[in-house]
Design a protein around this nucleic acid. Structure first.
Lengths: 179, 179
DNA sequence: ATGTCAATTGACACGGTGTCAAGTGAAAGG
DNA sequence: CCTTTCACTTGACACCGTGTCAATTGACAT
């Protein structure tokens, strides 16, 4: 759905792609950061993020929920990579972009936390973790940057990503069945 | 050793900090990317990366080596964060920066691979992993971006980082002792 | 006809990088 | 002592991408 091409995306590129003048973009969006932010919102809506999250929400065990959420990120990041990369690149300089990205991350974090909490409530969160710490770590594993590194740098397929991260998440966070 | 402050570092900032004129920087470095790259080299040298890697290299078991290497990254990234962040930000636009960063990552990857291979040679690499896949994944966990997220975003201390990532690495990659 | 609204063109300011030319000051060497 | 060399200076400038502004056009509605 998105070419992760190479070069950075300029306003003029977007304008040309949209078939309007560069200046006209500023009639619709206050600034570059704005455009990127609106685009992520729009994409979430169009791509049915809500529906895609159903498998995770409907999971009956924590372990299942964990795996489902990993699978969600594996399906989500490729859809969003272009905008994500652009927003990420602006983060250092543009505070508005920083906040926007932060919000996206918080949304992901909720998913992570829900899975970890479910696991904890079943007394199946592995020893040594608190809900908070485990959530942080899971969130890191499932971050866009991590996905990007595994997919682009190391050439993993989407299946590789899902399978391997599911295994890692399970081995890290799910206590081995004692009874 | 490095303030991870907020704003991006400009050439003029560096010049002022060094007490010379902005233009004089270009007498020593071809371009911004060059400066950053040389700086990482210099820092590695000055901070004795070689020595810091001794504990990892001298490890007698794979599991020990794995833990030692995690600890190394936990001590390394804070020393390098400013330059790393700057280089990382240029990556998207400047191919030279991309290559330079790639080289640093390859160096880290060797450390990851050495640990995983040692584990594999002891037949203690957990089921489901190949050396390659496990190395990729470990490399992702120990990447600068991951460190940055855990430390800056989630406020982990260096000890938190080391302890938790060591635990995760162990649980993910080290097969439970059967005999 | 009139107003309005979206979009256009062309120009410009700003900030950051990288380049260039001319000048300065000090140390090195005949 | 004079000259060369070298690191550095100042000041100006080009390039690029973002963001702004004014004046204009064309369509559509009333």
């Amino acid at each position: 759905m998105e070419g992760g091409s190479g070069k950075a995306v300029r306003m003029s590129d977007i304008a040309r792609a949209a078939g309007i003048s560069r200046q006209a973009l500023y009639l619709h969006f206050d600034a570059r950061a704005d455009l990127l932010i609106e685009t992520t919102r729009y994409m979430d809506e169009v791509m049915g993020v809500g529906e895609r999250l159903q498998p995770s929400r409907q999971a009956t065990t924590g372990s299942e929920r964990l795996s489902a959420f990993v699978a969600f990120t594996g399906g989500h990041w490729p859809n969003v990579q272009g905008v994500a990369r652009a927003l990420l690149a602006m983060r250092e300089t543009d505070p508005e972009a920083e906040v926007a990205w932060q919000n996206r991350m918080d949304a992901i974090r909720e998913g992570c936390q829900a899975a970890i909490e479910m696991l904890a409530s079943e007394h199946r969160l592995a020893d040594g973790w608190t809900v908070e710490t485990a959530t942080d770590l899971l969130c890191m594993m499932l971050s866009f940057e991590s996905w990007d590194q595994l997919i682009r740098r190391y050439g993993w397929s989407s299946e590789d990503y899902t399978n391997n991260l599911q295994r890692q998440a399970r081995q890290t966070f799910v206590k081995v069945q004692s009874s």
